[in-house]
Simulated scan of single mutants.
Amino acid sequence: MTRIRRRWMTAFVLALMTAACEASQEVDEEEEVARITRAPTPASEFIPVELEATVDNLVARINENELQPMQMIVLLKNLGAFFTPIATGASRAMGELGVTGNVLGPTEQSDDSSSTQELQNKQMAEATANGARGIGVSPFNDVNAAAIDEASAMGVHVVTFDTDLASSKRSIYVGMLNRSAGETAGKTLLDMLPPPPGTVMIHGNVGADWVDGYERTQGAQGVLAAAGYTPLVSQVYFFGGGDAEDVAWMKSQMDAADPPVVGILGLFNLSYRCAMAAEAVGKPELPVVAFDFDPKTVDYMRQGRIKATHIQRQYYEGYLVPYILYGINSIGLDATKAILAPQMFDEARFNIGVDVVPGDKVDAYNDFLDSIGATQ
């Protein structure tokens, strides 16, 4: 081999080695790029597959870009009872995202909510001033609208959850849609009723001043009326005489119902009173369908007196909020909404849905909640 050829071969080999090293370095750099990795969700028949798929799709789209540090805050009405699974979900999501932020709320719920409302407004203003790029908040009412609007004007996207505030400039609402949830509960009871005619007692809300309760009641009434039944709404009593007064009022309405009551539907956490009312009129065999997961409701389900209940997905509600906020900051609001489309009810509302739990699967559902750290 001539000296010139040897030199050419040497140069060629060196070029290949250099290219190989550069390619290897590029692969190493790609491997070192941070990616969002979700913790695996334990297998269960109660896993909301459609929500899981939506989160996975959002993560995949975010991971197409280089991850950016982000500061956010999630504000709850309180940190106990109903909101505990929400706090668990939000904290877990923020940990997976690696964002800087906190899940905040009072540990005790005061009878006077004005102090908590003022605290929320102050926390939103402070978070915005300190560089937060996203805020999740469970607002009380219009008193929180100005603080949300001020954050929005500063370029901070706000996601409401649990309670919507459509009059504000929030970007998206995440939570159960009450009219849709009422319709779902009505359909669950329909499968257990004899053919119409018949009256269905609804333990609901008749006043439009409480919008969420009214919407849920209207949804159930519509489904039952369309099926040929006569809906009869008994106003739920959250205060006052407690179980005894509420059950006595339901009994008086059921005794006077024409046509006779053929089923009872409870739409709030006091649904166990529906089973008590059935016993009070001497008809414990009446099919009863409930809402939420109060311990008394669970007891009646174990006895076979409540046939099913409907449970809000608080854990997923909390879990989705940080992911949506991060998505908006990373890929933009419109791109995020496009990925959320399967559960978007309209331009701005994401419907989290409800879990329908049959009476004979109470323990299985409890096991599911335990597995995700969202025991109620």
Rank of each mutant, 00 (worst) to 15 (best):
P287H: 04
A338S: 06
G155T: 03
M9D: 01
Y315L: 07
K337L: 10
S180I: 06
Q123N: 13
D112G: 11
S138Q: 05
N144I: 03
V247K: 02
I324P: 00
A23W: 10
Q235M: 05
V13P: 06
I306R: 03
G207C: 04
T184I: 09
Y315D: 01
T2D: 07
S371F: 05
F239K: 08
Y173S: 05
G241P: 07
P358W: 01
A129S: 11
A20N: 12
L369N: 07
Q312I: 08
D246E: 13
I148P: 00
R349F: 01
Y326R: 02
V55E: 06
T375C: 01
G266Y: 01
V362E: 07
A23G: 05
K361G: 06
I339T: 05
T100E: 14
A248T: 08
P42A: 12
L193I: 01
V174Y: 00
G359H: 07
T375A: 06
V262R: 08
V103G: 05
R3P: 04
D292S: 14
D367S: 13
P358S: 03
T41K: 11
Q218C: 11
G186T: 04
L97Q: 10
N329I: 03
E64P: 08
Q123S: 07
G198P: 14
W249T: 14
G95H: 09
F368W: 15
Q312S: 04
M276I: 01
V233M: 05
V262A: 08
N329E: 11
Q253R: 11
M254K: 00
P342S: 14
P231C: 01
N102E: 14
F291L: 07
Y326I: 01
K307I: 06
T199Y: 02
L270G: 04
Q123W: 11
L325M: 10
T107Y: 06
L286H: 02
T160V: 07
M72Y: 15
E150Q: 07
D28N: 15
D363L: 14
Q221I: 10
Q117A: 14
L369F: 08
D191N: 15
E32L: 14
A166N: 08
A125T: 12
Y323G: 00
I86D: 09
A256Q: 14
K122C: 03
L165M: 05
L320S: 05
V236A: 09
D111G: 10
G332V: 02
E64A: 14
D28L: 15
N141T: 12
K187I: 02
D299E: 11
I339G: 02
K169Y: 10
V49P: 04
L189F: 03
P106V: 08
L232P: 01
D294C: 12
G186P: 05
Q303V: 14
F268S: 14
A39T: 13
Q235N: 11
H310T: 02
E126P: 04
E183Y: 08
I86R: 08
L224N: 01
D56F: 02
A34S: 12
N57Q: 13
A185F: 09
I339Q: 00
L165G: 03
R216H: 04
I324S: 06
E32M: 15
T188R: 04
I328A: 11
L333M: 15
G204P: 08
G204D: 08
I73F: 11
I328L: 09
M124K: 10
G136E: 06
I324T: 07
E26Q: 15
A125Q: 12
Y319T: 07
E50A: 15
N205C: 13
A244W: 11
V261R: 04
A11E: 02
